[in-house]
Design a protein around this nucleic acid. Structure first.
Lengths: 230, 230
DNA sequence: GTCTATACCGCGATAGAC
DNA sequence: GTCTATCGCGGTATAGAC
């Protein structure tokens, strides 16, 4: 964690944490996904299955991952998967629901914070990079395996994507209305910003030198320039 | 084709075309991939197989596309595929070789054009958006099915990606050296620009209002702002 | 080079004992 | 809720006639 104030202010540190002298209260990238599932799911067996499935789907993709692989990685027999999930698709969708829901909620919280459009846009971008990167394997699965889902399931994901789009769009509009942003083509700019944030997952590795939060901060700076708001 | 000079100058129009009063000599997005394969491959049967495979892989992904599906779409029996390709992976790799090679070649030509770093960066970005978008289904397959490839095949693709990275990087360095760009973190900026261009394929549809070339032009403008070169 | 027929395998999912 | 055993389907790839 090289950066100080802005990243720390957005990433969830509380004054209390800082009093204690902690530099970060975030879980490591390695454990963030586990922590998320532990928070959302009671049964330890299901937690293990979800984690195993994320690992398999991330490494090989949904169709190349067999239920046998997943079961083995979760220390279960192949049949045990079907006690907890009605199909492999169901397992995928549960992962997507949990991960996408959690990320959306946190970005909504970020967007609801006070601040002028420049600060808010910077924070939204920072969060849109940092939060998925923290759970990068799971978030990659969410972005990658969209085609596998049923129409109803796709609709669910699309609503979440639309909500994120709207957050960025309304922030851009505010900034334009306040005369703080200069944007040529608002729909293109909005789409570019959202896709830019998402694209981090196509190359991100936790072995890189920047933490998810620092990376998000750097992207926040880039986006601020894109809307000519310096 | 709404834009005039810059996009037209880069997208391959010749003075002769313009004399004739054509607004564009580009193939339609629908036929660009076919044209590419027709240019690179002699056998019409193999052309049909490649086109069918691109369609299947794009729609469902590599593992969810069966060789039966591909053969049927190419009006062949399932067995006929194996006369021309030794495996389904081989078919995929041939697609990737042709598409990635062609795009790289054209971007290299773009990068070799004269102009100061600002013009060159704009053109490189424009081409990096427009060229893949013209063959968007095939280019999406190239970006999406990387995990399927063998180590040797992956290395081939990685060399192409590195070459594209280097083109952007050296242009950014030039611009910084010339005092025309102001960049905080060069590696992050380079990665962001490349990923931004690639991310267009995650949402692009030929039904959108902007042509690939106009979209590339808009992205060129955005990137010029990212490096503070206006 | 194309076809029909088929070998062979591994997948998702289920049955039934414990 | 977990296991072992297994069903049945559909996949990739091949054999052999034309």
């Amino acid at each position: 964690m090289a950066r100080k104030t802005p990243a720390a202010a957005v990433s969830g540190s509380t004054p209390k944490d800082q009093e204690k002298g902690r530099t970060s209260r975030l879980p490591s990238v390695q454990s963030a996904t586990k922590d998320l599932f532990r928070r959302e799911i009671e049964s330890p067996t299901i937690q293990r299955l979800l984690i195993a499935a994320v690992d398999c789907f991330w490494k090989s993709g949904f169709h190349a991952s067999s239920t046998r692989d997943i079961a083995k990685k979760a220390n279960l027999s192949p049949a045990a998967v079907y006690v907890h999930f009605k199909s492999k698709e169901d397992l995928l969708f549960r992962i997507i629901q949990i991960v996408a829901g959690d990320v959306l909620r946190q970005i909504q919280e970020t967007a609801a914070m006070d601040g002028d459009p420049r600060i808010r846009l910077w924070r939204i971008v920072q969060a849109s990079v940092a939060l998925p990167a923290r759970v990068y394997k799971a978030a990659t699965v969410v972005n990658t395996e969209f085609a596998v889902l049923s129409p109803a399931q796709r609709k669910y994901v699309m609503q979440i994507r639309d909500a994120l789009d709207d957050i960025v769009e309304s922030c851009l509009k505010e900034g334009c209305a306040a005369g703080q942003f200069q944007i040529d083509d608002l729909p293109v700019t909005k789409t570019a910003i959202v896709a830019l944030c998402r694209s981090v997952l196509t190359w991100y590795s936790p072995r890189g030198s920047l933490s998810p939060e620092d990376l998000g901060a750097a992207y926040g700076d880039l986006v601020i320039r894109m809307v000519k708001a310096d």
